[in-house]
Simulated assay, not measured.
Amino acid sequence: MINSLPTDPLRVPQREVQRLLGRCLLRIQQYERLIKAIVAHHEICGTVSSLDAIRSARIAEASTKSLGLLVGKLLGSYLVHGSGRDTDLVGSDSAEAATVRMQFRLEMDAEDFERTQADLKDLVRLRNHLVHHLIDHHDVWTVPGCARARQALLTAYDRIDLHFEQLRSWAENMEQARQLAAEFVQSEVFRDLVINGIAPDGSVDWPRSGIVRLLRDAMSELSVDGWTSIAAAQRFIRAREPDQLPEKYGCRSFRQVVHQSRLFRLEYRDVNGSREACFTDRLR
């Protein structure tokens, strides 16, 4: 039998409006997922042992934020005006020395930052309009209203897609920076900086240096009446960490390390009937 019922003239245009609205909302969800990743990962600060927990907490926090709040988080922290500002990253009160602070930023001049800020706020308004007010502005129960809604949704998708591609380029830049940072963390320069207290320019942070740490270990095990023979400490360090040599720190001898660090007192004392260079803590 041939169906003689008249075709509803609204079926096709309404379905097209629904399809285009769904396409816009899916693209917005992709945008929100990507901006959440940037907000969660573009900065971190804490002790080495706590980084995983801090990262998980940031991911969980970002997952609950609306697009408007995420844009607010992005502006001024990842997207910054000029050289930006040093945002206060939440650290730790722990006495653990190995603390990491890392922040990635995209710097813009004043004009670009102001334009980007306005564009992002416009995107938030567009998202809210599509989710809450589309049928308030377009009568999708008439064919002409559906036609106008269709054109508005095509225009909206182009705007959303442009924002998404921009955000993706920001995310790619951040990922490249993270990879460079990861390579640096695995380098000898980073090891010297964090473990040995040796800056890339060769200056030494003596209180945090590896060789001072070992000198203090030697003191705790070898001291007699509060004083430790430098020769005995030298043998102790070479047996435990043979790569911790004075030359690494720009010194010719362990005695020079003791003197140059300014953390110890140096005296010649009688050790088993002979005079030897000995050291003790300066605060003793």
Rank of each mutant, 00 (worst) to 15 (best):
R168M: 10
I2G: 14
V17A: 04
A37F: 07
R208D: 11
Q151S: 09
L69C: 11
S92I: 01
I198W: 03
F264N: 02
R168P: 11
G273L: 12
A239V: 01
D225G: 15
Q234W: 03
H259T: 06
R101Q: 07
E96D: 07
L70K: 14
R27I: 04
T142D: 02
F190M: 04
D122M: 03
I135D: 05
R216P: 05
K65F: 09
S209V: 06
D119S: 09
M174P: 13
L70A: 10
D93K: 13
A118E: 10
R148Q: 11
A57L: 06
R85C: 07
A232H: 08
L126K: 07
D88E: 14
D270G: 08
A199M: 02
R282Y: 11
R19L: 03
I44A: 15
G68D: 09
T116Y: 02
H259I: 01
E267R: 14
Q29W: 08
Q18T: 09
L214K: 01
I2C: 05
T116Q: 14
Q30C: 12
E61I: 02
V71H: 15
S66P: 06
S187N: 05
I35P: 12
P200N: 02
M219L: 13
W170K: 02
I195Y: 14
Y31R: 01
R216Q: 11
G197V: 00
Q14M: 09
P144Y: 05
V143G: 13
L193W: 02
R168Y: 12
Y157R: 00
